[in-house]
Amino acid sequence: MLEVRNLKLYYRTLRGYVRAVDDVTFQVRDGELLGLAGESGCGKSTLGNGLVLLKPPMNFVGGEVQLDGEKLPIEDYERMRDYRFKKVSIIPQYAMDALNPTRKIGRYIEEILESRGINFESVRETLIERLRLVNLPERVLRMYPIELSGGMKQRMVMVISTLLNPSLLIADEVTSALDVSTQKAVCLMIRNFKELGIVKSIIFITHDISVLYQIADRIMIMYAGKIAEVGKTAQIIQNPLHPYTKMLLTSLPEVGVRYTERMLSGIPGQPPQLLEPPKGCRFKERCPLRDKVCDKDPPLVEIEEDHVAYCWKVKPNA
């Protein structure tokens, strides 16, 4: 179980702080796959990376993170070494490039384990079993990364990062660069890792909400560094409440929609820049429901169990 309270992660730039993640509170329960969605620049990747690999120019500004009741020292890169890979692991956005090109994959894994003081032989069986789980032959261990396709590398990184059964796995845009057929396979494999209890919980970061509909238990929508709405997958997809979520979902072209039948429309305007974000609701500039009250910070409204939105215009049980 991951609990994040009032987390603030800012980027230091010449002109000041960019508030990429600004006062974010949420939790990921055991046995849960939380989907984290939003547009580019909304802070979703910063959040995911900040929980594991927080280093400059990213700055920890405030908040608390607890994993299984234990406080995670995310602001201390060195102390996080004890947790990284063992308790919390990340598959980074460019995981395909994460493998060392000059090492055979087996040797590379050995080195990573040794650097953590773990004997390779003791996990060998697990490794081979996991490879089978993601549909990779054992011989990949004797291959160089260049001999693997993008999808294979992606699955390899997945196996490596979950080798020590971390409690929490963060998957950052892992399927964005993959073909649709590979994407489906990798997504199902990731979910399978959770169902088999290899990891207790997963944060799956993506810009593609329809992928989350396929695999997530709950979905969290971020906009401009803040949480807009959180709810069970069905609640978010079938009954979105935050105006941003609503507009985002209606702007999705999906197989089954043609312009001749229904002309979709996007969301006019741009997300605010986060150097000096506007006061109050960050979506107000693009929101059709905007009025004066939106200049104050939006309240957290609980609509039904598990389903909350940060918006003045959402009424409980409306």
Binding site: V180, K184, V211, Y213, V255
Partner: peptide, 8 residues
């Protein structure tokens, strides 16, 4: 392909 495309 069509079976793999994620939709809502």
């Amino acid at each position: 392909l069509l079976e793999s495309v994620p939709t809502t």
